[in-house]
Amino acid sequence: MQKFPMTVEGEKALRDELQRLKTVDRPKVIEAIAEAREHGDLKENAEYHAAREQQGFIEGRIQDIEGKLSNAQVIDIKTIPHTGKVLFGSTVELINTANDEEVVYRIVGDDEANIKENRISVNSPIARAVIGKEEGDVVNIKVPNGTVEYEIGAVKHL
């Protein structure tokens, strides 16, 4: 059985979403279906079909979240001794050796990844290249344009 690594924050976000889906969204859509049924002919009732589609989405998402939570491997980076190595949950500063541009990423689970917030999936090419490395190490990361060389500037376990 596959385990899904996730941070403590990621688990909390999934549990919060699950709670909202079950206590807010599901009752709303059930009410919308009941209301649409009162309008009569269900074959030509767009509101009914839209509500049923929404119900299907909500139920599917609930099953998806419950499955991920039951197979979750929650990793609290704060409880792991700081060795200077890049680990799941670490925040890593990368310096492009060609132009000295710096980027900072936090390595998180697939569901938590959000490039706009500088959180990358543990399964991304960048994360796979830096996991296990230490400050000062140089890594080559394959990108669509070729290969980029980065130096690991700093590793933080926040």
Rank of each mutant, 00 (worst) to 15 (best):
I65Y: 01
E31S: 12
A72I: 08
V92M: 04
L69P: 00
R52N: 01
I75A: 11
R37V: 07
Y150P: 00
G136E: 09
N45A: 13
A32Q: 05
E112L: 10
P81Q: 13
T83Q: 13
G10M: 06
A13Q: 13
V108A: 03
D76V: 10
K28M: 14
G136D: 07
E59C: 01
V103G: 06
G40I: 09
G136W: 03
G109V: 06
Y48D: 10
N45Y: 12
P125K: 04
E9Y: 06
V29G: 00
K28F: 13
V155D: 05
A36M: 04
N123D: 14
D137C: 05
S121R: 04
R52E: 05
E101R: 14
K68S: 06
I58P: 00
H39E: 15
E11F: 02
A113P: 01
T97F: 01
P81T: 12
I115L: 09
P144M: 10
E38D: 11
K3H: 10
N99D: 15
F57L: 02
E149D: 10
R37I: 05
E135P: 02
R52Q: 07
N118A: 15
K12I: 08
R128A: 13
T23A: 05
I152D: 05
N114H: 01
L158E: 10
H157A: 11
A127E: 04
A154E: 15
T83V: 10
V8M: 03
K116Y: 01
A46G: 04
V8R: 02
I62D: 00
V103A: 13
H82V: 13
I65R: 00
D110Y: 05
N99Y: 10
A72Y: 10
L14D: 02
D41E: 15
N114R: 01
E35T: 14
T23Y: 01
I120E: 00
F88W: 08
E117W: 05
I65S: 01
V143L: 09
I80F: 03
A127R: 01
I107M: 07
E112Q: 10
N96Y: 08
H39I: 11
E135Q: 15
P5R: 03
F88R: 09
T7F: 11
F88S: 13
M1P: 02
G132A: 08
V130D: 08
V130S: 07
Q73N: 09
R61K: 14
M1V: 08
